[in-house]
Structures are given as C-alpha cells and as structure tokens.
C-alpha cells in the first residue's frame, strides 16, 4: 500500500486541455473519489495513475517515488474497468489468477490466494465458469477479485457500478465498502454518481473542465459547497441572491426567502449568492410581513415530499420535507410562509 500524489499534472489532447494543472494527495488506505460530469478529466487522471496516459507535465508519485516513467505493467496497480474487461476466454479462476503469473510466488501459494479471493468476494463455487456464464454483479466481483489478488499498491475503480441496475448498484456499493475496509488498500474511485461518492468516499474531489473545483470530506462538500457548480452537482440546491444585513444586532444576509445568519461577517459589497438545501426550507402558515410563497407543484417521493414554490418576487425555490401525513396538507396553489432553517449561510464564490 502506498500514498499517491499528483503534482501539477497537465494533459492536453490537440487543442483541448483534459487535465489542467491538477494536484492532489491520496493517503495510505484512503478511499478517494473523483466526481464530475463526463468529459471533466477524471478518467484521464485515473489512467495517468494506471500508466496508460502520460502527463504532458507534472509528476505522479507513489510514496514520494516518481512513477511517471514506469509502464502500466510495472506499477502494481489493480484496476477495475467500467466494462469489467474480464478475459472472455478464461474461467473465473484463470481471470483472477492472471496477475499472479507475473509475480514470483509459489504455485501452491497462488492457488491459495485465488481460493481466498473467491471466498472473500463471495464467488466460491463459480471458479470454473466463464465470464459469459455470470450475472452482472458476479462479473463485477470477479473484476474486483482480479484487481485485488495481486495485492496492489493502489486500487483504481473506473465507474465500476455504472453497468448495473439500481438495486444491484446499491448492493455492490455496500460490497465495495466492505471489501475496501477488509483490504484497506489505497483506492482511487472515479464516478459521475454523487450518491456513490457521498456514501462511500473518505474524501472527494469535484472536477469540472479539467480542474478540481473543491475537495474534502463528503459531508463538508455537501454542507459547504464552494460555488454554484458544486452546490448543484452534489445534491439539489436553491441558489438565492443575498445582501448584507443585520438583524437583532447579528450579521447576516437578506434573501428573497428571508434572513440568514452568517458567521463570516458582512460580505463584500453588492449582491452575493447563497446555497440553501431544499431540506433546509420549511413551510408554515403565511406570516404577514415575512417571506411568503405560492406552491406551484407538490411531488410525492415516498420518503419525502418535494414542493416547488414561487416567492413573491418570482424567485423559484424548492422545499423538501418528510413525507409524513401532515406534509400532504399542502397542495399546489396554496400560499405558505417560508422559513430558512440555516445556522450559517453558505456563500458561494
């Protein structure tokens, strides 16, 4: 197991810059996520760590050792591909054992390791099958086992769950968490699915147009998105214009939906924008003199209810609240009072 560090990595393809001066560090044993829309450069970074892509400038370091010149087969990196890339002409056992052929290990030990991996990825009994005889979830496990059996210094996962249906995806998410905990390997995981990233990651980096926009623990990123892109990409968000104001002597921000306390003191002059999560918007009976809104639609989501509202000045805002019986109280057309339940305003850059 190693730590991974990227230092000022840049990669251009023709005129377009896929990765623009990116630096990041992944600690030993950390499960690090790169999250972003397609084409943001996250896969290019993963492939640079694997050695399939050489950066135009910058360094890739494993435990402070520069590996930029080492070809993929010399890096001891386990990779799980989006399409699994299982060798169709080999059995499950042969697939898992493939990487051990290139390591100086006694053949009895090799067998032992393959059996152990089959067991730990819950594939016992399927060793003799061909990949075509396995379900999607099983193929996914073989891909994981094949990458882990070589005891990689780094495990790379490239959108590993995107080919599974929703239910299986949630199941495999738990499986990956369990396996990562068990093996404790340094891992870089690339996805465009924010739920996957938020639920699994130790740390996440959000990417856009070849640049890391924000990185940190999932809860930090969710609670304090740095800009509108992050606020909207990670979860839903109401972006509201705001102006510095004071209420009861405390500093805060005035928005069309009401007043927000702000610990960061009065913002720069002029209008700023704040992010308010829909679950922090609550509805009540209309209050004279406060922010009121008209409900334009109510959507029942099962565990929650989502309401789309129009504030008096026309600003649209979304509220999300538990789907309890009294939640159904509201219907579209109703005039309601809006309260922002925020301890500290999230001011966007």
């Amino acid at each position: 197991m190693v730590s991974v560090e990227l230092k000022n990595i840049t990669k251009k393809y023709g005129g377009t810059t896929a990765v623009d001066d990116v630096s990041l560090e992944i600690g030993r044993g950390e499960l690090f996520f790169l999250l972003g829309p397609s084409g943001c450069g996250k896969t290019t970074i993963l492939r640079m760590v694997a050695g399939f892509v050489t950066p135009d400038s910058g360094e890739v370091l494993f435990d402070a050792r520069d590996v930029s010149k080492i070809p993929p087969h010399g890096r001891n990196v386990g990779m799980v591909f989006q399409t699994y890339a299982l060798f169709p002409h080999m059995t499950v056992e042969q697939n898992i054992g493939y990487g051990l052929r290139f390591r100086k290990i006694e053949s009895s030990e090799k067998k032992k390791r393959v059996v152990e991996l089959l067991d730990r990825t819950r594939l016992t009994g399927l060793g003799g099958r061909l990949p075509s005889q396995l379900s999607g979830g099983q193929q996914q496990r073989v891909a994981l086992a094949r990458a882990l059996v070589i005891q990689p210094d780094v495990l790379l996962l490239d959108e590993p769950l995107s080919n599974l249906d929703t239910r299986l995806r949630v199941e495999m998410r738990e499986e990956i968490r369990r396996i990562h905990n068990e093996f404790g390997v340094t891992a870089l995981y690339v996805t465009h699915d924010q739920e996957e990233a938020l639920s699994l990651a130790h740390r996440v980096a959000i990417m856009r147009d070849g640049v890391i926009v924000q990185s940190g623990a999932p809860s930090d990123i969710y609670m304090r998105p740095r800009n509108e892109f992050v606020a909207r990409f990670v979860g839903d968000s109401n972006i509201l214009p705001a102006k510095a104001a004071r209420r009861d002597g405390r500093p805060g921000l005035e928005t069309p939906a009401g007043w927000l306390p702000s610990s960061s003191g009065p913002p720069r002059n002029g209008t700023v924008f704040v992010s308010v999560r829909p679950e922090n918007v609550s509805l009540c009976q209309p209050i004279p003199g406060a922010a009121n809104a008209k409900i334009s639609s109510v959507t029942f989501l099962g565990s929650a209810i989502k309401a789309e509202l129009a504030l008096e000045d026309g600003t649209a805002i979304t509220a999300l609240f538990p789907g309890t019986a009294n939640g159904v109280l509201w219907k579209s057309g109703d005039i309601v009072g809006v309260r922002l339940e925020v301890d500290d305003a999230v001011v966007l850059e």
Binding site: G78, F87, Y98, R101, F102, L156
Partner: peptide, 25 residues
Amino acid sequence: VVLEEAAASLGAPALTVLRTITFPL
C-alpha cells in the same frame, strides 16, 4: 483495447499481453 489494458495493469508485459490475451481472442 480495454482487455489489453486490463492485462497490462495486472503486470503483463506487452508481448505477454499479445500471447495470452490478444492472440487467443
């Protein structure tokens, strides 16, 4: 190319990739 990349990432040198993955396929 992805199968060849998978083999390379598992430690197979280029000619071994050809012999064990590409040619059989």
